[in-house]
Design a protein around this nucleic acid. Sequence first.
DNA 1: GCCAACGTTGGC
DNA 2: GCCAACGTTGGC
Length: 153
Amino acid sequence: MYWVFKTEPTECSIADIAAAGSNGVIWEGVRNYQARNFLRDQVKTGDMVLIHHSSCDVVGIAGVATIIAEAFTDPSQFVAENPYYDPKSSADKAPWVAVRVGFVRQFPQVLSMADLRAIAGLADMQLLKKGNRLSIMPATNAEFDLVLLAAKA
DNA sequence: GCCAACGTTGGC
DNA sequence: GCCAACGTTGGC
């Protein structure tokens, strides 16, 4: 399948994923049930992921990653010092999962929201829907291809 | 920093 | 289980 993952580049940018090498990075801290359900139930090894930079200078899709390890228990939920700590999580009740993502490519330029909205075939893309706050969301194969085409990547 | 949209919480 | 109040997200 195809996905869009949102990230604040100050936390984990496409360049950070590139720098992580073949082990990739752990994608943790998802604390929304709808996003968690995608991550736990549908995100599979080998799936392709559009990496979206949010809350930053140039908001938009910055590159592509792939899933190299599918859902496992998110360790950050147990760590009191961690910003993603969940005091309600315990060994026998740990609702949150993480995956591991590996670098595929970084776009020469970030495809901004305006760039994306200008692509006719992306009119229904979930990422572009008003009020969308999901940090993990599916994309279609067609949307994925259009984004790569527009990125000249 | 504004604010729309949405999620979560908690009193009842 | 309803729903008002509150918190958070995230584009602009």
